[in-house]
Design a binder for these strands. Structure first.
Lengths: 229, 229
DNA sequence: GTATACATGACAATCTTGTGACAGGCACTT
DNA sequence: AAGTGCCTGTCACAAGATTGTCATGTATAC
Protein backbone atom coordinates (compact mmCIF):
# COMPACT_ATOMS: atom_id res chain seq x y z
CA UNK A 1 0.00 0.00 0.00
CA UNK A 2 1.37 3.38 -0.96
CA UNK A 3 1.44 5.77 1.96
CA UNK A 4 -1.39 8.25 2.06
CA UNK A 5 -0.52 11.90 2.11
CA UNK A 6 -2.10 14.15 4.68
CA UNK A 7 -1.90 17.91 4.64
CA UNK A 8 -2.06 19.69 7.98
CA UNK A 9 -3.20 23.28 7.91
CA UNK A 10 -2.85 25.15 11.15
CA UNK A 11 -1.24 28.45 11.98
CA UNK A 12 0.40 27.16 15.14
CA UNK A 13 3.62 25.37 14.38
CA UNK A 14 3.55 23.46 17.65
CA UNK A 15 0.23 21.87 16.88
CA UNK A 16 1.28 21.01 13.35
CA UNK A 17 4.37 19.40 14.70
CA UNK A 18 2.51 17.36 17.24
CA UNK A 19 0.10 16.06 14.64
CA UNK A 20 2.82 15.46 12.12
CA UNK A 21 4.72 13.25 14.50
CA UNK A 22 1.64 11.24 15.30
CA UNK A 23 0.81 10.75 11.65
CA UNK A 24 4.31 9.87 10.63
CA UNK A 25 4.37 7.22 13.30
CA UNK A 26 1.24 5.84 11.71
CA UNK A 27 3.01 5.77 8.34
CA UNK A 28 1.41 8.68 6.64
CA UNK A 29 3.23 11.14 4.49
CA UNK A 30 2.78 14.59 5.97
CA UNK A 31 2.67 18.04 4.43
CA UNK A 32 2.18 21.23 6.35
CA UNK A 33 0.88 24.69 5.68
CA UNK A 34 0.27 27.58 8.02
CA UNK A 35 -2.29 29.49 6.02
CA UNK A 36 -5.02 28.95 3.50
CA UNK A 37 -3.10 30.20 0.48
CA UNK A 38 -0.10 28.02 1.03
CA UNK A 39 -2.46 25.15 1.71
CA UNK A 40 -4.24 25.68 -1.56
CA UNK A 41 -0.98 25.73 -3.45
CA UNK A 42 0.14 22.50 -1.82
CA UNK A 43 -3.16 20.82 -2.51
CA UNK A 44 -2.92 21.64 -6.16
CA UNK A 45 0.69 20.57 -6.42
CA UNK A 46 0.74 17.51 -4.25
CA UNK A 47 -2.80 16.22 -4.37
CA UNK A 48 -2.91 14.99 -0.78
CA UNK A 49 -5.40 12.31 0.16
CA UNK A 50 -6.79 14.11 3.15
CA UNK A 51 -6.84 17.54 4.72
CA UNK A 52 -6.61 18.29 8.42
CA UNK A 53 -7.83 21.81 8.69
CA UNK A 54 -7.84 24.19 11.58
CA UNK A 55 -11.08 26.06 11.82
CA UNK A 56 -9.66 29.27 13.19
CA UNK A 57 -6.86 30.85 11.26
CA UNK A 58 -5.77 34.35 10.46
CA UNK A 59 -6.73 35.49 6.99
CA UNK A 60 -8.91 33.13 5.04
CA UNK A 61 -10.19 30.83 7.72
CA UNK A 62 -10.63 27.12 7.61
CA UNK A 63 -14.29 27.06 6.72
CA UNK A 64 -13.67 29.43 3.90
CA UNK A 65 -10.97 27.22 2.45
CA UNK A 66 -13.10 24.12 2.86
CA UNK A 67 -15.93 25.74 0.99
CA UNK A 68 -13.66 26.83 -1.78
CA UNK A 69 -12.16 23.38 -2.18
CA UNK A 70 -15.54 21.72 -2.37
CA UNK A 71 -16.46 24.18 -5.03
CA UNK A 72 -13.64 23.42 -7.38
CA UNK A 73 -13.92 20.41 -9.57
CA UNK A 74 -10.39 19.20 -9.04
CA UNK A 75 -10.54 19.24 -5.26
CA UNK A 76 -14.17 18.59 -4.51
CA UNK A 77 -13.47 14.97 -3.62
CA UNK A 78 -10.73 15.73 -1.12
CA UNK A 79 -11.81 14.59 2.34
CA UNK A 80 -11.53 17.21 5.04
CA UNK A 81 -11.35 16.85 8.80
CA UNK A 82 -11.88 20.06 10.70
CA UNK A 83 -10.00 20.82 13.88
CA UNK A 84 -11.42 23.23 16.37
CA UNK A 85 -10.74 24.44 19.86
CA UNK A 86 -14.35 25.08 20.64
CA UNK A 87 -16.84 22.35 21.04
CA UNK A 88 -19.82 24.37 20.04
CA UNK A 89 -22.51 22.70 18.06
CA UNK A 90 -22.75 25.72 15.79
CA UNK A 91 -19.31 25.22 14.47
CA UNK A 92 -19.95 21.61 13.82
CA UNK A 93 -22.94 22.40 11.70
CA UNK A 94 -21.18 25.16 9.84
CA UNK A 95 -18.26 22.89 9.26
CA UNK A 96 -20.29 20.05 7.90
CA UNK A 97 -22.17 22.45 5.68
CA UNK A 98 -18.93 23.68 4.28
CA UNK A 99 -18.19 20.16 3.23
CA UNK A 100 -16.07 18.73 6.03
CA UNK A 101 -16.20 14.96 6.34
CA UNK A 102 -15.46 14.86 10.02
CA UNK A 103 -14.80 17.09 12.93
CA UNK A 104 -12.46 16.87 15.89
CA UNK A 105 -12.43 19.20 18.86
CA UNK A 106 -9.21 20.12 20.55
CA UNK A 107 -7.79 18.83 22.73
CA UNK A 108 -7.63 15.41 21.16
CA UNK A 109 -5.28 12.50 21.57
CA UNK A 110 -3.08 11.45 18.68
CA UNK A 111 -4.71 8.04 18.93
CA UNK A 112 -8.13 9.51 18.41
CA UNK A 113 -6.93 11.63 15.55
CA UNK A 114 -5.36 8.73 13.72
CA UNK A 115 -8.40 6.59 14.28
CA UNK A 116 -10.81 9.09 12.83
CA UNK A 117 -8.52 9.91 10.01
CA UNK A 118 -8.36 6.26 9.13
CA UNK A 119 -12.12 6.01 9.30
CA UNK A 120 -12.62 8.96 6.99
CA UNK A 121 -10.12 7.63 4.52
CA UNK A 122 -11.75 4.24 4.59
CA UNK A 123 -15.15 5.53 3.75
CA UNK A 124 -14.10 8.17 1.27
CA UNK A 125 -11.49 6.22 -0.62
CA UNK A 126 -13.33 5.14 -3.71
CA UNK A 127 -12.92 1.68 -5.06
CA UNK A 128 -10.04 1.45 -7.44
CA UNK A 129 -7.67 3.37 -5.25
CA UNK A 130 -6.96 0.40 -3.04
CA UNK A 131 -9.30 -2.25 -4.26
CA UNK A 132 -9.22 -3.61 -7.74
CA UNK A 133 -11.73 -2.45 -10.33
CA UNK A 134 -12.92 -4.68 -13.09
CA UNK A 135 -14.90 -3.88 -16.18
CA UNK A 136 -15.70 -6.37 -18.88
CA UNK A 137 -12.67 -8.49 -18.18
CA UNK A 138 -10.39 -5.51 -17.86
CA UNK A 139 -8.87 -5.56 -14.41
CA UNK A 140 -6.89 -2.84 -12.73
CA UNK A 141 -5.33 -3.81 -9.44
CA UNK A 142 -3.76 -0.99 -7.46
CA UNK A 143 -2.18 -3.39 -5.01
CA UNK A 144 0.03 -5.02 -7.58
CA UNK A 145 -0.13 -1.94 -9.80
CA UNK A 146 -1.01 -4.09 -12.74
CA UNK A 147 -3.59 -4.19 -15.46
CA UNK A 148 -4.83 -7.33 -17.08
CA UNK A 149 -7.23 -8.25 -19.78
CA UNK A 150 -8.99 -11.53 -19.08
CA UNK A 151 -6.13 -12.64 -16.91
CA UNK A 152 -3.52 -11.68 -19.45
CA UNK A 153 -1.20 -8.98 -18.09
CA UNK A 154 -0.95 -5.83 -20.19
CA UNK A 155 2.08 -3.68 -20.89
CA UNK A 156 1.21 -0.23 -19.72
CA UNK A 157 3.27 2.84 -18.92
CA UNK A 158 2.99 4.86 -15.70
CA UNK A 159 1.00 7.72 -17.15
CA UNK A 160 -1.32 5.39 -18.99
CA UNK A 161 -1.83 3.50 -15.75
CA UNK A 162 -2.82 6.63 -13.86
CA UNK A 163 -5.04 7.70 -16.70
CA UNK A 164 -6.78 4.35 -16.78
CA UNK A 165 -7.12 4.32 -13.03
CA UNK A 166 -8.74 7.70 -13.10
CA UNK A 167 -11.10 6.64 -15.83
CA UNK A 168 -12.05 3.38 -14.18
CA UNK A 169 -12.83 5.15 -10.95
CA UNK A 170 -14.78 7.84 -12.77
CA UNK A 171 -16.80 6.01 -15.36
CA UNK A 172 -19.61 7.33 -17.50
CA UNK A 173 -18.51 10.92 -17.29
CA UNK A 174 -16.83 13.23 -19.78
CA UNK A 175 -13.64 14.95 -18.90
CA UNK A 176 -12.06 17.74 -20.84
CA UNK A 177 -8.39 17.56 -21.60
CA UNK A 178 -7.89 20.24 -19.00
CA UNK A 179 -9.66 18.29 -16.30
CA UNK A 180 -7.66 15.21 -17.12
CA UNK A 181 -4.46 17.19 -16.85
CA UNK A 182 -5.53 18.39 -13.42
CA UNK A 183 -6.58 15.01 -12.19
CA UNK A 184 -4.03 12.73 -13.76
CA UNK A 185 -0.99 14.90 -14.28
CA UNK A 186 -1.49 17.05 -11.21
CA UNK A 187 -2.24 20.71 -10.80
CA UNK A 188 0.75 22.83 -11.55
CA UNK A 189 2.25 21.05 -14.49
CA UNK A 190 2.30 22.88 -17.70
CA UNK A 191 1.64 20.56 -20.54
CA UNK A 192 -0.07 20.98 -23.88
CA UNK A 193 -3.67 19.88 -23.86
CA UNK A 194 -3.09 17.87 -26.98
CA UNK A 195 -0.64 15.74 -25.06
CA UNK A 196 -3.67 14.13 -23.52
CA UNK A 197 -4.65 12.86 -26.96
CA UNK A 198 -1.35 11.15 -27.32
CA UNK A 199 -1.66 9.37 -24.02
CA UNK A 200 -5.21 8.41 -24.80
CA UNK A 201 -3.90 6.85 -27.94
CA UNK A 202 -1.17 5.02 -26.03
CA UNK A 203 -3.71 3.81 -23.53
CA UNK A 204 -6.02 2.57 -26.24
CA UNK A 205 -3.16 0.81 -27.91
CA UNK A 206 -2.16 -0.82 -24.64
CA UNK A 207 -5.69 -1.98 -23.93
CA UNK A 208 -5.84 -3.62 -27.29
CA UNK A 209 -8.77 -4.50 -29.50
CA UNK A 210 -11.07 -6.03 -26.87
CA UNK A 211 -11.26 -2.92 -24.72
CA UNK A 212 -10.68 -0.08 -27.13
CA UNK A 213 -14.29 0.90 -27.04
CA UNK A 214 -14.20 1.73 -23.34
CA UNK A 215 -12.16 4.84 -23.94
CA UNK A 216 -14.45 7.07 -25.95
CA UNK A 217 -13.86 10.35 -27.68
CA UNK A 218 -16.48 13.00 -27.10
CA UNK A 219 -15.99 15.35 -29.95
CA UNK A 220 -15.64 18.98 -29.01
CA UNK A 221 -15.42 18.11 -25.35
CA UNK A 222 -12.98 15.47 -24.27
CA UNK A 223 -12.92 11.80 -23.37
CA UNK A 224 -15.06 9.36 -21.47
CA UNK A 225 -14.77 5.86 -20.05
CA UNK A 226 -17.96 4.01 -20.65
CA UNK A 227 -19.19 0.48 -21.08
CA UNK A 228 -21.98 1.63 -23.30
CA UNK A 229 -21.44 2.05 -26.96
CA UNK B 1 -17.46 30.52 -24.58
CA UNK B 2 -16.84 34.05 -23.44
CA UNK B 3 -13.24 35.18 -23.54
CA UNK B 4 -11.58 35.49 -20.18
CA UNK B 5 -10.14 38.85 -19.18
CA UNK B 6 -6.60 39.09 -17.91
CA UNK B 7 -5.10 42.13 -16.27
CA UNK B 8 -1.37 42.64 -16.66
CA UNK B 9 0.33 44.75 -14.04
CA UNK B 10 3.91 45.65 -14.75
CA UNK B 11 5.74 48.95 -14.81
CA UNK B 12 7.65 48.18 -17.99
CA UNK B 13 5.55 48.86 -21.04
CA UNK B 14 7.66 46.58 -23.20
CA UNK B 15 6.99 43.57 -21.04
CA UNK B 16 3.31 44.36 -20.83
CA UNK B 17 3.18 44.59 -24.56
CA UNK B 18 4.96 41.31 -25.08
CA UNK B 19 2.60 39.52 -22.75
CA UNK B 20 -0.44 41.25 -24.16
CA UNK B 21 0.38 40.07 -27.65
CA UNK B 22 0.84 36.50 -26.50
CA UNK B 23 -2.43 36.52 -24.63
CA UNK B 24 -4.38 38.11 -27.40
CA UNK B 25 -3.14 35.46 -29.75
CA UNK B 26 -4.51 32.93 -27.32
CA UNK B 27 -7.89 34.68 -27.38
CA UNK B 28 -7.85 36.41 -24.07
CA UNK B 29 -9.11 39.90 -23.46
CA UNK B 30 -6.26 41.96 -22.08
CA UNK B 31 -6.14 44.93 -19.74
CA UNK B 32 -2.99 46.69 -18.64
CA UNK B 33 -1.88 48.76 -15.69
CA UNK B 34 1.56 50.11 -14.83
CA UNK B 35 1.12 50.57 -11.12
CA UNK B 36 -0.80 49.17 -8.21
CA UNK B 37 -3.28 52.02 -7.98
CA UNK B 38 -4.33 51.85 -11.60
CA UNK B 39 -4.49 48.10 -11.29
CA UNK B 40 -6.80 48.26 -8.35
CA UNK B 41 -9.10 50.64 -10.15
CA UNK B 42 -9.26 48.37 -13.17
CA UNK B 43 -9.93 45.35 -11.04
CA UNK B 44 -12.88 47.03 -9.45
CA UNK B 45 -14.22 48.35 -12.74
CA UNK B 46 -13.61 45.47 -15.06
CA UNK B 47 -13.53 42.46 -12.77
CA UNK B 48 -10.88 40.57 -14.68
CA UNK B 49 -10.72 36.80 -14.36
CA UNK B 50 -7.04 36.69 -13.62
CA UNK B 51 -4.20 38.93 -12.61
CA UNK B 52 -0.65 38.78 -13.94
CA UNK B 53 1.34 40.71 -11.44
CA UNK B 54 4.93 41.84 -11.48
CA UNK B 55 6.59 41.34 -8.17
CA UNK B 56 8.89 44.34 -8.31
CA UNK B 57 7.26 47.64 -8.98
CA UNK B 58 7.84 51.19 -7.85
CA UNK B 59 5.45 52.35 -5.17
CA UNK B 60 3.20 49.66 -3.79
CA UNK B 61 4.87 46.53 -4.98
CA UNK B 62 3.30 43.40 -6.35
CA UNK B 63 3.27 41.40 -3.16
CA UNK B 64 1.64 44.26 -1.37
CA UNK B 65 -1.13 44.47 -3.92
CA UNK B 66 -1.64 40.73 -3.89
CA UNK B 67 -1.98 40.72 -0.16
CA UNK B 68 -4.43 43.57 -0.26
CA UNK B 69 -6.58 41.91 -2.89
CA UNK B 70 -6.72 38.65 -0.99
CA UNK B 71 -7.86 40.56 2.05
CA UNK B 72 -10.77 42.27 0.43
CA UNK B 73 -13.90 40.23 0.21
CA UNK B 74 -14.75 41.29 -3.30
CA UNK B 75 -11.40 40.35 -4.77
CA UNK B 76 -10.23 37.50 -2.59
CA UNK B 77 -11.20 34.94 -5.20
CA UNK B 78 -9.29 36.60 -8.01
CA UNK B 79 -6.51 34.26 -9.12
CA UNK B 80 -3.06 35.82 -9.24
CA UNK B 81 0.06 34.77 -11.07
CA UNK B 82 3.21 36.50 -9.93
CA UNK B 83 5.95 37.44 -12.34
CA UNK B 84 9.46 37.89 -11.08
CA UNK B 85 12.92 38.35 -12.42
CA UNK B 86 14.53 36.51 -9.54
CA UNK B 87 14.29 32.83 -9.19
CA UNK B 88 14.91 32.77 -5.50
CA UNK B 89 12.96 30.35 -3.43
CA UNK B 90 12.34 33.05 -0.86
CA UNK B 91 10.27 35.03 -3.25
CA UNK B 92 8.29 32.03 -4.21
CA UNK B 93 7.37 31.38 -0.65
CA UNK B 94 6.58 34.99 0.05
CA UNK B 95 4.53 35.13 -3.08
CA UNK B 96 2.48 32.08 -2.31
CA UNK B 97 1.96 33.33 1.20
CA UNK B 98 0.66 36.57 -0.14
CA UNK B 99 -1.95 34.57 -1.96
CA UNK B 100 -0.58 34.05 -5.43
CA UNK B 101 -1.91 30.99 -7.21
CA UNK B 102 1.14 30.48 -9.32
CA UNK B 103 4.49 31.96 -9.95
CA UNK B 104 6.55 32.46 -13.07
CA UNK B 105 10.15 33.58 -13.18
CA UNK B 106 11.42 35.76 -15.97
CA UNK B 107 12.48 35.10 -18.53
CA UNK B 108 9.62 32.90 -19.60
CA UNK B 109 8.30 31.90 -22.96
CA UNK B 110 4.88 33.11 -24.06
CA UNK B 111 3.95 29.47 -24.43
CA UNK B 112 4.71 28.72 -20.84
CA UNK B 113 2.89 31.77 -19.67
CA UNK B 114 -0.24 30.92 -21.58
CA UNK B 115 -0.11 27.31 -20.45
CA UNK B 116 0.16 28.15 -16.79
CA UNK B 117 -2.44 30.81 -17.05
CA UNK B 118 -4.77 28.29 -18.57
CA UNK B 119 -4.02 25.85 -15.79
CA UNK B 120 -4.78 28.39 -13.11
CA UNK B 121 -8.00 29.48 -14.75
CA UNK B 122 -9.04 25.90 -15.24
CA UNK B 123 -8.84 25.05 -11.62
CA UNK B 124 -10.27 28.24 -10.25
CA UNK B 125 -13.32 28.19 -12.44
CA UNK B 126 -16.02 26.56 -10.38
CA UNK B 127 -17.79 23.64 -11.91
CA UNK B 128 -21.33 24.04 -13.02
CA UNK B 129 -24.13 22.02 -11.58
CA UNK B 130 -25.24 19.55 -14.15
CA UNK B 131 -28.30 17.46 -13.92
CA UNK B 132 -29.79 15.05 -16.36
CA UNK B 133 -33.09 15.83 -18.06
CA UNK B 134 -35.47 13.16 -19.24
CA UNK B 135 -38.57 13.37 -21.36
CA UNK B 136 -40.55 10.41 -22.61
CA UNK B 137 -37.59 8.09 -22.57
CA UNK B 138 -35.29 10.65 -24.11
CA UNK B 139 -32.45 11.26 -21.71
CA UNK B 140 -29.80 13.95 -21.88
CA UNK B 141 -27.05 13.64 -19.31
CA UNK B 142 -24.56 16.48 -19.16
CA UNK B 143 -22.22 14.57 -16.86
CA UNK B 144 -21.52 11.91 -19.41
CA UNK B 145 -22.37 14.25 -22.25
CA UNK B 146 -24.64 11.69 -23.69
CA UNK B 147 -28.10 11.42 -25.16
CA UNK B 148 -30.01 8.20 -25.09
CA UNK B 149 -33.37 7.02 -26.21
CA UNK B 150 -34.75 4.37 -23.88
CA UNK B 151 -31.27 3.45 -22.80
CA UNK B 152 -29.91 3.28 -26.31
CA UNK B 153 -27.14 5.83 -26.89
CA UNK B 154 -27.71 8.21 -29.79
CA UNK B 155 -25.20 9.62 -32.24
CA UNK B 156 -25.37 13.35 -31.97
CA UNK B 157 -23.04 16.15 -33.02
CA UNK B 158 -21.86 18.94 -30.75
CA UNK B 159 -24.18 21.61 -32.07
CA UNK B 160 -27.17 19.30 -32.03
CA UNK B 161 -26.30 18.38 -28.48
CA UNK B 162 -26.26 22.00 -27.38
CA UNK B 163 -29.46 22.65 -29.24
CA UNK B 164 -31.19 19.72 -27.62
CA UNK B 165 -29.87 20.68 -24.21
CA UNK B 166 -31.26 24.14 -24.63
CA UNK B 167 -34.62 22.81 -25.74
CA UNK B 168 -34.89 20.27 -22.96
CA UNK B 169 -34.17 22.88 -20.36
CA UNK B 170 -36.59 25.31 -21.97
CA UNK B 171 -39.58 23.22 -22.90
CA UNK B 172 -42.99 24.31 -24.07
CA UNK B 173 -41.83 27.62 -25.43
CA UNK B 174 -41.29 28.90 -28.92
CA UNK B 175 -37.97 30.36 -29.90
CA UNK B 176 -37.24 32.32 -33.02
CA UNK B 177 -34.22 31.40 -35.09
CA UNK B 178 -32.57 34.53 -33.82
CA UNK B 179 -33.09 33.58 -30.22
CA UNK B 180 -31.77 30.11 -30.82
CA UNK B 181 -28.69 31.51 -32.47
CA UNK B 182 -28.09 33.70 -29.44
CA UNK B 183 -28.68 30.97 -26.92
CA UNK B 184 -27.12 27.99 -28.61
CA UNK B 185 -24.50 29.45 -30.90
CA UNK B 186 -23.59 32.31 -28.60
CA UNK B 187 -24.20 36.01 -28.87
CA UNK B 188 -21.81 37.44 -31.38
CA UNK B 189 -21.60 34.98 -34.20
CA UNK B 190 -22.75 35.81 -37.63
CA UNK B 191 -24.65 32.90 -39.04
CA UNK B 192 -27.57 32.71 -41.44
CA UNK B 193 -30.88 32.20 -39.71
CA UNK B 194 -31.68 29.42 -42.15
CA UNK B 195 -28.79 27.49 -40.69
CA UNK B 196 -30.94 26.83 -37.69
CA UNK B 197 -33.33 24.91 -39.91
CA UNK B 198 -30.56 22.64 -40.99
CA UNK B 199 -29.51 21.86 -37.46
CA UNK B 200 -33.09 21.30 -36.44
CA UNK B 201 -33.28 18.77 -39.19
CA UNK B 202 -30.07 17.11 -38.07
CA UNK B 203 -31.33 17.00 -34.53
CA UNK B 204 -34.62 15.44 -35.58
CA UNK B 205 -32.78 12.89 -37.62
CA UNK B 206 -30.52 12.04 -34.70
CA UNK B 207 -33.45 11.65 -32.34
CA UNK B 208 -35.08 9.22 -34.69
CA UNK B 209 -38.70 8.27 -35.20
CA UNK B 210 -39.72 7.87 -31.54
CA UNK B 211 -38.86 11.42 -30.54
CA UNK B 212 -39.27 13.40 -33.73
CA UNK B 213 -42.47 14.96 -32.52
CA UNK B 214 -40.79 16.68 -29.61
CA UNK B 215 -39.12 19.19 -31.88
CA UNK B 216 -41.96 21.16 -33.37
CA UNK B 217 -42.04 23.75 -36.09
CA UNK B 218 -44.05 26.84 -35.33
CA UNK B 219 -44.76 28.26 -38.70
CA UNK B 220 -43.93 31.90 -39.08
CA UNK B 221 -42.15 32.02 -35.76
CA UNK B 222 -39.58 29.38 -35.01
CA UNK B 223 -39.30 26.11 -33.11
CA UNK B 224 -40.49 24.61 -29.90
CA UNK B 225 -39.74 21.59 -27.75
CA UNK B 226 -42.96 20.14 -26.46
CA UNK B 227 -44.38 16.86 -25.29
CA UNK B 228 -47.80 17.84 -26.47
CA UNK B 229 -48.83 17.24 -29.99
C1' DG C 1 -53.17 28.76 -57.62
C1' DT C 2 -49.66 31.21 -55.93
C1' DA C 3 -46.65 33.11 -52.65
C1' DT C 4 -44.30 32.08 -48.54
C1' DA C 5 -42.12 29.33 -45.23
C1' DC C 6 -39.93 25.25 -44.16
C1' DA C 7 -37.46 20.61 -45.20
C1' DT C 8 -33.93 18.28 -47.29
C1' DG C 9 -29.73 16.66 -49.66
C1' DA C 10 -25.34 17.92 -51.30
C1' DC C 11 -20.87 20.17 -50.60
C1' DA C 12 -16.70 22.64 -49.62
C1' DA C 13 -14.48 24.93 -45.87
C1' DT C 14 -13.13 24.45 -41.41
C1' DC C 15 -12.21 22.21 -36.94
C1' DT C 16 -10.96 18.36 -34.22
C1' DT C 17 -8.87 14.31 -33.37
C1' DG C 18 -5.73 10.31 -34.60
C1' DT C 19 -1.09 8.93 -35.51
C1' DG C 20 3.80 8.24 -36.31
C1' DA C 21 8.12 10.20 -35.52
C1' DC C 22 11.40 12.44 -32.72
C1' DA C 23 14.30 14.54 -29.15
C1' DG C 24 15.22 15.20 -24.38
C1' DG C 25 15.31 13.42 -19.72
C1' DC C 26 16.10 9.85 -16.45
C1' DA C 27 17.52 5.55 -14.31
C1' DC C 28 20.47 1.89 -14.73
C1' DT C 29 24.35 -0.71 -16.83
C1' DT C 30 28.45 -1.38 -18.78
C1' DA D 1 31.72 8.35 -18.91
C1' DA D 2 29.34 6.57 -22.24
C1' DG D 3 25.66 3.53 -23.56
C1' DT D 4 21.01 1.63 -23.33
C1' DG D 5 16.25 1.41 -22.82
C1' DC D 6 12.09 3.52 -21.41
C1' DC D 7 8.93 7.22 -20.86
C1' DT D 8 7.30 11.88 -22.06
C1' DG D 9 5.80 15.83 -24.36
C1' DT D 10 5.50 18.04 -28.79
C1' DC D 11 5.08 18.50 -33.58
C1' DA D 12 3.49 17.92 -38.32
C1' DC D 13 0.55 15.78 -41.11
C1' DA D 14 -3.30 12.51 -42.10
C1' DA D 15 -7.86 11.22 -41.35
C1' DG D 16 -12.30 12.25 -40.09
C1' DA D 17 -16.22 14.81 -38.43
C1' DT D 18 -18.83 19.02 -38.21
C1' DT D 19 -20.53 23.28 -39.94
C1' DG D 20 -22.72 26.86 -42.62
C1' DT D 21 -24.73 27.65 -47.20
C1' DC D 22 -27.09 26.95 -51.22
C1' DA D 23 -30.24 24.98 -54.57
C1' DT D 24 -34.19 22.60 -54.87
C1' DG D 25 -38.29 20.09 -53.30
C1' DT D 26 -42.55 20.24 -50.49
C1' DA D 27 -46.08 21.86 -47.38
C1' DT D 28 -49.14 25.57 -45.89
C1' DA D 29 -52.00 29.75 -45.85
C1' DC D 30 -54.78 32.85 -48.20
Amino acid sequence: MTAKTVLIVDDEAAIREMIAVALEMADYRVLEADNAQAAHALIVDEQPDLLLLDWMMPGTNGIELARRLKHEEATSELPIILLTAKSEEDNKILGLEAGADDYITKPFSPRELVARLRAVLRRTTPRGIEEAVEVEGLLLDPASHRVSSNGQALEIGPTEYRLLQFFMTHQERVYTRGQLLDQVWGGNVYVEERTVDVHIRRLRKALGEPHQHLIQTVRGTGYRFSTQL
